[in-house]
Every structure is written in structure tokens, then in C-alpha cells.
Amino acid sequence: MNGQVSDILAEDARGWVIRLQDSSFDGWDAFADWLERDPAHLAAYNAALETDQAMAALFAVPPEPVIEAEPVAARPSRRLFLISGGAFAAALAVVVGWTSLDTGRSARTEYATAAGERREVALADGSKMVLNGATRVALLDKRHAELIQGEALFTVRHDAADPFIVKTGDVTLEDAGTVFNVVRDETGLRVSVAEGAVIYQPQADAVRLTPGDALSVTGGAKPEVTRTVTADVGSWRGGQLVYRNETLERVAADVSRNLGVQLRAGKGTEAIPFTGTISTQGGPGAVIERIAALTGTRAIRAGKGWMLDTIDGAPR
């Protein structure tokens, strides 16, 4: 740039680059004041901006192709990679190692993610779990997992003699050769199947779910089975939330988990049915604005988070 920018000036300029990136930044007049104080400030800011953009662009470089380690799991896994493509590869890049909280008394291992985080867990038998944000999964033994809360996509190596079991709440899901997604949150339970089959409550209802089936349970009601598209199962990993006639309450819960923001449906909007695809890319503010536009609601700040409110509701 224009000669050597002093370290202090460079630091100040970087400070503005950092602050401006926060979607809640509102110090525009102070920023203009700083720029006006010395013509060198603008040059320093532009230099810092260019550096920031060049470095951030590096993080968008596609990582080297992932080679599947387990031949048994290779077929379903590879298909999953195709479904979500580059975006999933990018999500993989942010997967950090997992922590295991060994209780000491058994082989129980717990995996947890913060809202907005993702984590992939490879199991000893070649099966795999991908945890969405705000999710806790306990592995009771190598063929037995419990989804305590949140959302996870299971890619299970099938063994008819030793079925893989997922417990969640008082519900048991048994695999029959399978890629399936399970959500347990405040809105109830959702199970969708991409490959193979899952048996819901094998000892009781024994509902057999095949590819494209989506089961939903709200409160104590009977399970409802609807159809989805298999390619959409687990599409959250690629930054897409796909809905057919889903309540806004559930959309809000999903967004909160995926983005690490609190979003809830305001009074009178919980049951608004939503059909469509929401991209979770571009920062929480932009995503929430898009959702409001798509669902005919308006997004307002509520406490630490956001609320979707009816357009005709009284302004606060």
C-alpha cells in the first residue's frame, strides 16, 4: 500500500474491520470520525480490509478429497457426500475433535455440540453419527446410542443379528440397514430415512419407515408418517433446511440449533405451515431475515435472540 503503515495505525484499522463485521455494529458515525481525522486512516482501513478478505477467502478453499476409511460403510457414505457436495466438505473443515465424558462406570460415552457447531463421530464398527448443533448423544455401547437432545444423522453399518438401536426419550428406533436423521427437541420427535429402513418402537407400534418416510411425534400424540425426498434427509449438513408443511415452531427450533442463535415463533405464528428450503449460509442475521420474508412474518429482537412475529401484530 502507500508506504509503511505504522503498527498502531494498522492495529486501529484492523479493529474497525473486525467491528464492522459484527451484524450489530452501529458505530457508523464514529467510524466516519476516525476516517476523517487523518487521510492515512482510509488507506490503512482499505489495506486491512484487503488483507482480511484475502485471508478469509483461504478458508473457502475446498479441502483435499476425503478418503473413506471403512470399506463397509463406503457405499452409503459416498452417496451422502454426493448429496451435500462442497458445502459438507466445508462443514467438515470446522469439525473439531470430540470430547468424551467417560462416566467411569460403563462404556457410556457422551458427545455434545454447542448450538451452531457440528461434529462427526466415527464408531468402531464403521458406523457414523453427524451431530448438528445443540445436540447431546450418548453411546451406550458400540451398537446402541441415545439421542438425549438435538439432531443427528446416523449412517449405520447394518447387521441383522445385531441391529443398531437409537433410543430417544421413551422411543426406540431400530435400524434395518440405514441412513437416517433423528431430531429430538422441544417440539417433539422427527425421524426421516434416506436409505434402508428404521423400525419405530419395535416392541410396540413397530412402524417400519422406508426411504423417503418422515415420522413426526408431537407431545403425546400418535406418530404421523409423511413423505419426504431422500436427498433432503440430513441436508442440514450442506446448509439447507428443507420443509414440507412444517410448523414455524419447528423451523425456528431447527434454525436455533443450526446457527447458534435463539429464534422462536411468536404468539400466533407457531402453527403457520411452511413449505420450502432455507439456506443457513450467510450469517444468522441474513438467514433470519430470509425466513421472515419466506414465511410472511417479521423478525424482531427478543431478549438475547430473535422472534418471528405476525406482520399485523402491534409494534412494540
Partner: peptide, 14 residues
């Protein structure tokens, strides 16, 4: 912050 677009206040809380 930079890649996921979360605000500083949200990160501090998280």
C-alpha cells in the same frame, strides 16, 4: 465470528 457470522455478544454468551 469471521466464518460463521456470529456476533461478538453471541459468542461471549456461548
Amino acid at each position: 465470528y469471521r466464518l460463521d457470522g456470529l456476533g461478538q455478544a453471541a459468542i461471549a454468551r456461548e
